[in-house]
Design a protein around this nucleic acid. Structure first.
Length: 291
DNA sequence: CTGGGGAGGGGGCCC
DNA sequence: AGGGCCCCCTCCCCA
């Protein structure tokens, strides 16, 4: 049943880091733009698919640093336990020396590439703890501006900076995109701006509350409670105007509308009122005679 | 077709 | 952070 009207929409295609959250009690995920790149755009298997649409879009959009970032994700970078994020600057020139086609060519071990990136991610996270909010990994790769000067692009808002510290400060204090976190559901496309909201949503997939009487599963305990009332016949919500009682408060509220001469929902054309918005919608869809 | 009841689901808020 | 509750909503069914 579609409930999309209740879901917050973000103009973001962020995807979660499920590996990180699988260690938690529920399979939920948090991702920043950085995480998205680390864990989704660079595939952790051996078949290196084409660059993701997001990266392709960025690569085509203009910035040389974006282009580099894409290549770096496909390059077979040597492992070094002491590698810092900036050690990848050395690979920058290697990447630029290759043609785009070559740079995108699948390498022998994408897993190793992925591990390298993960290593940088770990290093990056240490840096991140000092420069919170997060710094995207790929922002650590400089581009060469037309004048020959290195520039560092914020991959969230695409603003360029001429020093790493400038970029860091921007990410920490100015970039609105970087300060936002998105939490995406692994079972569907919905995104939330808080972990709690996502956990709540994921319960609608996992349905942890099971009725002992009929086995039907629900997302929340109080939904199960309401369902159990259908077995017991309990109706704790009574109408003050008549003798009717209801098992559900919402249904009592809807019922109370029937006692009101002026219903809550009114047609703006004929001014007829309806007890439910769905009835008003039906009225308008059927074609209000005065509209 | 309309109105209403029953059942269930969603996010948000509060504690 | 998690549970309980609230409010709003939809869908199905029936009179």
């Amino acid at each position: 049943m579609p409930r999309s009207f209740l879901v917050k929409k973000h103009h973001s295609s962020k995807k979660p880091n499920y590996g990180r959250l699988n260690s938690e009690t529920e399979e939920v995920s948090c991702c920043t733009p950085k995480d998205s790149l680390l864990h989704n755009d660079i595939p952790p298997h051996h078949h290196c698919p084409a660059p993701s649409p997001r990266l392709q879009q960025r690569a085509q959009s203009s910035s040389s640093s974006c282009s580099l970032s894409l290549r770096a994700g496909r390059l077979h970078l040597p492992s070094s336990p002491n590698a810092s994020p900036l050690s990848f600057l050395g690979h920058y020139s290697e990447a630029c020396s290759r043609s785009p086609t070559e740079a995108y060519k699948p390498v022998e071990s994408c897993t190793k590439v992925n591990l390298e990136i993960q290593h940088v991610a770990g290093d990056h996270r240490r840096r991140e703890s000092l420069l919170s909010p997060s710094l995207p990994l790929l922002a650590l790769f400089p581009a060469i501006a037309p004048g020959g000067q290195e520039s560092f692009e914020c991959l969230d808002c695409h603003k360029e900076h001429f020093s790493f510290s400038g970029l860091a400060k921007h990410k920490q204090l100015q970039c609105e995109w970087s300060s936002k976190k998105y939490f995406s559901c692994k079972y569907c496309e919905k995104e939330y701006d808080s972990l709690g909201a996502l956990k709540m949503h994921i319960r609608t997939h996992t349905l942890p509350c099971v009725c002992k009487l009929c086995g039907k599963a629900f997302s929340r305990p109080w939904l199960l409670q309401g369902h159990i009332r259908t077995h017991t016949g309990e109706k704790p919500f009574s109408c003050l105007h008549c003798s009717r009682a209801f098992a559900d408060r919402s249904n009592l509220r809807a019922h109370l509308q029937t006692h009101s001469e002026v219903k809550k929902y009114q047609c703006t054309s004929c001014f007829k009122t309806f007890s439910r918005i769905s009835l008003l919608a039906k009225h308008q869809e059927a074609g209000c005679p005065l509209s």
